[in-house]
């Protein structure tokens, strides 16, 4: 039997899951981004040649690094929050506060990473 969704795409996009839903979606996007990138990066490094160098040069581009750092850092920091709350279920009552702390940590670390990537790209 095929998959049946009970809501339309527009209804899904209007879903008011707010902060927790946003972290859920970004966690999946970050995980998928890493899985795709790392698989291609491994294959490119393994195959080598001009094709492999071309792919790895894209990876070293500053714009791509900003994207992949978002995937890695958000997935890692959000994953730590999920792990802590799952291993200590009594803390789930405070999951919204945990998400606020998570965003503060993410923005500080990611902001610093982006600043350094751009500074290096500009030759600083």
């Amino acid at each position: 039997m095929g998959l049946k969704r009970d809501v339309s795409l527009m209804t899904a996009l209007r879903y008011k899951g707010q902060g927790p839903f946003l972290t859920y979606i970004l966690h999946r996007i970050g995980g998928l981004g890493m899985a795709v990138f790392i698989s291609i990066h491994l294959l490119a490094s393994f195959l080598g040649g001009s094709g492999g160098r071309f792919v790895n040069n894209i990876y070293q581009n500053w714009a791509f690094q900003i994207f992949i750092f978002f995937c890695v850092l958000f997935h890692a920091i959000n994953g730590l929050r999920i792990t802590i709350l799952d291993l200590f279920p009594k803390l789930i009552e405070y999951h919204r506060q945990a998400i606020t702390i998570e965003w503060a940590a993410f923005l500080a670390i990611y902001g610093f990473a982006v600043f350094n990537i751009i500074r290096t790209a500009l030759g600083g």
């Binding site: 990473a113 500074r119 290096t120």
Partner: peptide, 11 residues
Amino acid sequence: MNFADVMRWAF
């Protein structure tokens, strides 16, 4: 090394 290089190594 800059911060991004250190993170790349750590991961």
